[in-house]
């Protein structure tokens, strides 16, 4: 399994993260997205005419939408992550996978605008991104009332992986995440999962590690 990858892309990170959480072995092929624009060159357009990354390749199969890649990787390496216990759970997972496109189109765009100078209607992106975060926050409140800590149920699924990166990286695009206490707790529980890996802008939880030594004593 090969992932054509960019270290700063949240959509590529979703795939790396799920691979790490499921123990799947994937081969990373770094793409010079910035400054080189390699994803818009002929060999990449031949694989993916839409000119986006990630691109995922396995045994002749090519997938270019992060939600599709998550679905395929989970089916192959960790079926529990698909969250298809019940029709309702399956529906919720599909709902959030589709929703994650709105996150990419709002927060994702604001982020590459503010960080890498890519063109965007920044105010519109920020408004749409804030709206997305409010919807996630409200959904997490209702999930909690139903006894569920994650977006689609009582355990993490690819729905959470699909929505987690942009929810944490919103400040990169000038969108505050301070007003969302439920998102804060939800992203913490994802960062606490065994096998979790970080990406730039998403720090690991240093609080999971003990202090390295005794506190120097006052005499």
């Amino acid at each position: 399994m090969i992932l054509y990858d960019y270290i700063l892309s949240p959509d590529c990170y979703k795939v790396r993260l799920l691979a790490a959480l499921t123990g799947a072995r994937i081969t990373l092929r770094p793409v010079d997205f910035h400054p080189g624009g390699e994803h818009k060159t002929a060999p990449f357009l031949a694989m993916n005419p839409s000119g986006t990354i990630p691109i995922f390749e396995d045994d002749g199969l090519i997938l270019t939408e992060s939600s599709a890649i998550l679905t395929y990787l989970a089916a192959k390496a960790g079926p529990a992550w698909l969250g298809d216990d019940t029709p309702a759970m399956r529906g919720r997972v599909a709902q959030w996978l589709a929703f994650s496109q709105r996150l990419s189109a709002s927060i994702g765009k604001a982020r590459v605008h503010d960080m890498l100078n890519k063109p965007a209607d920044i105010q519109a992106c920020r408004r749409a991104g804030t709206q997305c975060l409010r919807e996630i926050e409200a959904a997490l409140v209702e999930q909690r009332l139903a006894g569920h800590a994650f977006l689609a149920g009582d355990r993490p699924t690819i729905a959470d992986i699909a929505c987690f990166p942009h929810s944490m990286l919103a400040p990169d695009g000038g969108i505050s995440v301070d007003p969302y206490p439920s998102i804060r707790l939800w992203t913490r529980s994802i960062r606490a999962l065994p096998g979790f890996i970080e990406m730039p802008g998403i720090h690991r939880l240093h609080d999971l590690k003990p202090e390295p030594g005794p506190i120097p004593e006052r005499v």
Partner: peptide
């Protein structure tokens, strides 16, 4: 090391700093 890996490594390092600097 391929050129793209060198670029990604340095971008990774600097982008880890960015959330501090802001």
């Amino acid at each position: 090391t391929p050129m793209t890996d060198l670029i990604h490594f340095q971008q990774m390092i600097f982008l880890q700093d960015r959330s501090i600097l802001e």
